[in-house]
């Protein structure tokens, strides 16, 4: 009997050790590229590719240069552009998403089911299939003439179709008990009152996550920004700006600065992600409870 438990224990110990070693190896593989980004951003030696990963010397100059050298590639300008676009987009599209989600979840009207199906079908077209047409529509109305207007165009493109991704928010509204609404109706509240004074205050988490998610969009989008902003470097957003640092003409000089720029941009996005990931998980597992 004693012998048996001992052999079981050894077996367990061996299994645990294997698992831990395995996890460490995996963890190393997953963390290595992240460290590569951080280390290269502090690298003292310029130039693009080196035959080693650990830099020979460390410096903060890459970060300084990002903000000081503004002649051809202007990082801080891109940052302000993106911030402006992101703030406008997140306010507009959060409004769109929340109103559609609320209507689809709480109100019952004739075309509701049909609209839900239409929304689902529209979501299946590849997004940039419509991009060429959007490009021409914007051009036709003169939005692509001047730089600042291009940013406005970008805001409209990002928030215009945003209403279609209402499923997570709808799933959240679905979980608020209907009896609360009914109690308010008995007290003489209109549907608008219920929306404004009951549903919205109860939905703070989903409002926060919708705001944050649409705020993040412009920071990481590459395709739409590239098509609309074209070659106008002054009005680039961060994502295409950083990408342009890796173009053949710039890569030798800007390689390390590219990574510095990546680190700077990753920090706020990582924070937002860590804040919202709890909601993200709930959204995924919550929407499929049925």
């Amino acid at each position: 009997m004693k012998r048996k438990t001992r052999s079981m224990k050894t077996k367990q110990f061996i299994a645990n050790s294997i698992v831990h070693v395995f996890l460490s190896v995996l963890g190393f593989v997953w963390v290595l590229p992240v460290f590569f980004v951080i280390l290269t951003s502090f690298r003292e030696e310029g130039g693009a590719y080196k035959s080693y990963i650990i830099p020979r010397g460390y410096t903060l100059n890459n970060y300084k240069k990002l903000f000081e050298q503004t002649s051809s590639l202007n990082y801080s300008r891109w940052f302000i552009n993106t911030l402006f676009v992101a703030i406008c987009t997140c306010l507009l599209s959060a409004f769109f998403v929340l109103s559609i989600a609320y209507v689809m979840s709480r109100l019952r009207f004739k075309l509701r089911k049909r609209l839900l199906n239409v929304a689902m079908i529209l979501g299946m077209f590849p997004g940039f299939m419509s991009m060429i047409a959007v490009y021409y529509i914007l051009k036709g109305f003169g939005f692509l003439e001047a730089g600042p207007l291009k940013l406005v165009a970008l805001i409209m493109v990002y928030s215009g179709g945003a209403g279609l991704v209402f499923y997570v928010a709808k799933g959240f509204f679905d979980t608020i008990p209907k009896t609360i609404d009914e109690a308010a109706f008995i007290d003489g509240a209109t549907k608008w009152d219920v929306f404004l004074k009951i549903t919205i205050p109860l939905s703070k988490p989903i409002i926060v996550i919708t705001l944050l998610q649409s705020f993040m969009g412009p920071w990481v989008d590459y395709i739409f920004a590239k098509v609309i902003l074209g070659q106008d470097r002054k009005y680039y957003t961060i994502a295409i700006g950083l990408w342009s640092m890796l173009e053949k003409e710039f890569i030798e000089y800007y390689y390390t600065q590219f990574f510095a720029g990546c680190v700077l941009i990753s920090i706020p996005i990582a924070i937002i992600f860590l804040v919202t990931q709890r909601f993200y998980v709930e959204g995924v597992s919550g929407a499929v409870k049925g």
């Binding site: 963890g27 990574f259 996005i269 992600f273």
Partner: peptide, 16 residues
């Protein structure tokens, strides 16, 4: 450890 790698924006990790 693993979540750290998703927190980095996708285009950054892809370009890296």
């Amino acid at each position: 450890l693993f979540i750290m790698s998703i927190a980095v924006p996708q285009f950054v990790s892809l370009l890296t």
